[in-house]
C-alpha cells in the first residue's frame, strides 16, 4: 500500500524526529511511503485567523501536491481536521476533493485502515500521561468526549499505545479540557493560553507520569514551552515515537 506522508510545517521545522518516526513506523508496517518534496502547509494558520485569501494559495498548493494520492497520512490531528472539515479557502477541484476524502491522521490510519494493535518492536515501561487534542476528539472523533455522557468511552490513541509492552497510563483530572494552544490563540491570547497550559501540566503532574504523550505535536509544543519555563523536566513524545520504539 502506498501513502503520501504529509509533514506539518511546525513538525518540519521544530520536531523533525516526529516525521522521521512516522516514516519509519509506516515502513515497518509494510507501507510504501512517498514524501512529496513540494509540500509546505495545509493552510490552517491563515484560515483560522479568518484570512481566507491568504490561505487560498496555500490550500490550493496543498491540494495540487497531495491530490494525486489515494492515501495521505499526517501525524497531526489539527491538520487532518482542517483538511477534512474546514478546507474551504481554495477553489474546488478534483484534487481538492480527493485530498479531503483521503487524508488520515496517523492514529486513524493505524487504527482504522491498517487495523494494527500490536507493536512488538516497542517496549516502554513507563507511566504515560496521554493527551488527546481537541481537534482529534471533537473534530475527528478519535476518542469519546466527556461532554457526551452517554457515549461509550473509547480512545483510538490509547488503544494503539496499549499495544506497546510495559506501558502504563496515568489518570488525571479534566482529561479533555483544552491545553490552550489553539493555534494563533497562543500568541493573541498569550496570558490565557499559558495559564491553560500551566493548569493542564499541573493536573497531569499530580498523577506522577514519567512523560507526556500526544498524537498532536502542536499541543505538546505549547505544553513543553510551558513546562520548560516552569523548569519542569518531563519529557514529551509524539505517539509515533512511542509506537516506533523510542526509549525514554
Amino acid at each position: 500500500m502506498q501513502v503520501a506522508l504529509m509533514v506539518p510545517c511546525y513538525i518540519d521545522m521544530f520536531y523533525p524526529r516526529v516525521g522521521m518516526a512516522t516514516l519509519e513506523l509506516l515502513e515497518r508496517l509494510g507501507v510504501d511511503v512517498v514524501y512529496p518534496k513540494e509540500q509546505t502547509c495545509c493552510g490552517q494558520p491563515m484560515a483560522n485567523s479568518g484570512c481566507y485569501e491568504e490561505a487560498r494559495a496555500t490550500e490550493e498548493h496543498c491540494a495540487r501536491v497531495f491530490g494525486p494520492f489515494d492515501c495521505v497520512v499526517t501525524p497531526s490531528g489539527s491538520c487532518t481536521h482542517h483538511i477534512r472539515n474546514k478546507f474551504t479557502a481554495g477553489a474546488d477541484s478534483a484534487e481538492k476533493q480527493n485530498l479531503v476524502r483521503n487524508t488520515y491522521d496517523l492514529v486513524e490510519f493505524l487504527h482504522d485502515v491498517l487495523k494494527i494493535r500490536e507493536f512488538p518492536w516497542a517496549t516502554f515501561e513507563h507511566k504515560v500521561a496521554l493527551h488527546t487534542s481537541c481537534s482529534a476528539i471533537r473534530g475527528l472523533n478519535m476518542a469519546s468526549m466527556s461532554e457526551r455522557v452517554h457515549d461509550p468511552v473509547f480512545s483510538k490513541p490509547r488503544a494503539l499505545l496499549s499495544g506497546v509492552s510495559g506501558i502504563e497510563f496515568v489518570e488525571f483530572e479534566r482529561v479533555d479540557e483544552c491545553c490552550g494552544f489553539g493555534g494563533t490563540f497562543a500568541a493573541t491570547e498569550e496570558a490565557v493560553s499559558a495559564r491553560m497550559g500551566y493548569d493542564k501540566l499541573a493536573f497531569m503532574q499530580k498523577a506522577s507520569p514519567d512523560c507526556i504523550v500526544s498524537s498532536d505535536m502542536s499541543c505538546l509544543m505549547h505544553l513543553q514551552g510551558c513546562a520548560h519555563r516552569q523548569k519542569q523536566d518531563i519529557p514529551f513524545y509524539h505517539l509515533a515515537e512511542i509506537l516506533n520504539g523510542v526509549s525514554l
Partner: peptide, 20 residues
C-alpha cells in the same frame, strides 16, 4: 507574545525535508 510565559521551541538542526 509567545515567549512571555513559555519557552520558544528550539529550531531543529535539520528540518525534516532537509533530512529527507
Amino acid at each position: 507574545a509567545w515567549g512571555k510565559h513559555r519557552d520558544i521551541p528550539e529550531p531543529a538542526r535539520e528540518t525534516f525535508h532537509e533530512w529527507y
